[in-house]
Amino acid sequence: MNLSVRKIVISGILGAIVILLGVTRLGFIPVPTPAGHATIIHIPVILGGVLEGPVVGLITGAIFGLFSFLQPGAPFFADPLVSVFPRLFIGVVAYLVYFATKRINTVLACVLAGAIGSLTNTVLVLGMATWRGYLPAEVSISLGFLHGIPEMVVAAILTVILVKGIQRIRPAEEK
């Protein structure tokens, strides 16, 4: 398997944004729920999947997972099955959704990729947290609704804006 320079660099920079959003807490939007914040850190991962394909999505997701495991923002992330494993899928799912729907309309494809990529994160992380016994099932479900929905909306909007903005400055052969 070979990775092009482009894939290496883009995954690296998106990984840097993930870490940056994590350490500055900018990636957490305070919401009035017990957990206290909704996350938008997974957006660079979704972008990686949409803009550069599943491999970049996977690598960026792995950096996201690794980072949230080694510098956890919430206690149950101190378990690689909750922090690393679910994050591997975000970018890949976002890519698949984008790839399947971009024929219809690219804006719609971005919205769907952002929303479903975000949903993947919410469902898998809370699912794993419940399965590993960190959260009772009822709490997970209510957290899923309270956080999952705002996260999905924000992710969908940001994905569209960012993909459109970034595509404008990228070299022409990428389309």
């Binding site: 070979n2 995954s11 690296g12 690598i59």
Partner: peptide
């Protein structure tokens, strides 16, 4: 596995955190 490339990705990520900050 492209280990060299993956390590390079990690290095770029770590290096760019402060620049992007």
């Amino acid at each position: 596995l492209p280990t060299q490339e993956l390590v390079m990705t990690l290095v770029i990520a770590l290096r760019f955190v402060l620049i992007l900050a």
